[in-house]
Design a protein around this nucleic acid. Structure first.
Lengths: 193, 193
DNA sequence: CCTTCCATGAAGCGAGTGCTACACTAGCGC
DNA sequence: GCGCTAGTGTAGCACTCGCTTCATGGAAGG
């Protein structure tokens, strides 16, 4: 009776709301996720958000899942190339992070991880999955190095750190990104030796 | 009339409260900075915290400044050695970050920067100063490299990223830290070439 | 026409926030 | 003793938060 298939319009409307909320979060950040403010920006009411999603936590996880799907679609376009060295990968990802299409995603995920670090529910659970997914994806993008295998979390840490610092102090990392990529590429050249 | 010198006891009591709050934040994190909860843990009342500090923002900045002083005292013990290469520095700092005495400081500052990234006052202002101070300190700890000068923000990004990921997903960066330090040291070996 | 049920608005609840107004005590100078 | 002021407890304000209750409109089905 109360499952979605019995009321397809309801699931459809929820989907529309989730999509609109995802676009809004990508545009304005996670700071706008209060029920009343979010509802106002979406042209509905907090009452309706709870009606369709059941609770704010499921709304947040749903919206973040949708943002994740959007990003994975984007990333598939960058995964077609061959695996590369850690330094080259970092250079690619940091350049990607300056792409105005990808940048909002970086900011949202870094914000999610930052809230998870503060112990805020439900971001802590979401962050665990996100970190797992990303390390797995990074792992598939790296040339295996039997001598000194690069832990994907190492590259993820750099990307998160650069993004976080850039969000907190805009402009503070303009030189840091290129230097890091080049330093790792220098290390790449020594990886086999 | 209302300055501190006229009522030294008041300044003294404020100092005691700030010290106790700093210890508490180092122990339990910034999540405990609500006025009522903080006051309860300090054995006083929110009324008194406002009375002595004027507002929550000045209380927060005061407590964070005190934590900063504590850390700078700690760090002076590690600044007596000669300047080192970026890779060696990163190895030292990441090892330092696992020291149970220093770890609470790392977590607090990373939390501050994370809140600043979310645009939360007054952490945004504090973070700007913290990042400036740290990049300056890192700059004094690095061997100048005329060919490829290492931006201090690069190392700060790594430290922040590793700390953030470790807070969000404990255990996810156990291999990342050593690998990064070693990779940068490999790059150090190529810096002059 | 009448029922039934989905969708929605209006109002409100209870808890939380930073902060304030008021009353009171205790100690000090006159 | 009197007045003054610093310190502190109690209560409360105005607000936000996630969420609920009530009432209603309106369409579908008998």
């Amino acid at each position: 009776m109360s499952d979605d298939s019995a009321t397809p319009d309801r699931a459809g409307r929820r989907d529309v709301l989730a999509e609109a909320a995802a676009e809004l979060v990508l545009r304005e950040g996670l700071g706008t996720m209060g029920l009343r403010g979010l509802a106002r920006r979406l042209g509905t009411s907090d009452r309706m958000l709870i009606y369709y999603f059941g609770s704010k936590d499921t709304l947040v996880t749903g919206v973040l899942a949708r943002i994740g799907e959007k990003l994975s679609v984007l990333l598939q376009a960058y995964s077609v190339g061959p695996p590369v060295s850690p330094g080259a990968f970092l250079g690619q990802v940091l350049a990607l992070g300056r792409d105005p299409v990808v940048m909002p995603f970086m900011r949202v995920w870094t914000d999610v991880i930052a809230r998870a670090a503060a112990g805020e529910a439900p971001y802590d659970m979401v962050a665990k999955k996100v970190v797992a997914d990303w390390t797995a994806w990074i792992g598939t993008r790296l040339i295996p190095d039997p001598d000194r295998p690069c832990p994907p979390a190492a590259l993820l840490s750099i990307v998160e750190g650069v993004t976080l610092l850039e969000m907190a102090c805009p402009g503070s990392t303009t030189e840091a990104g290129p230097w890091l990529a080049e330093a790792l590429m220098r290390a790449d050249g020594r990886a086999a030796g």
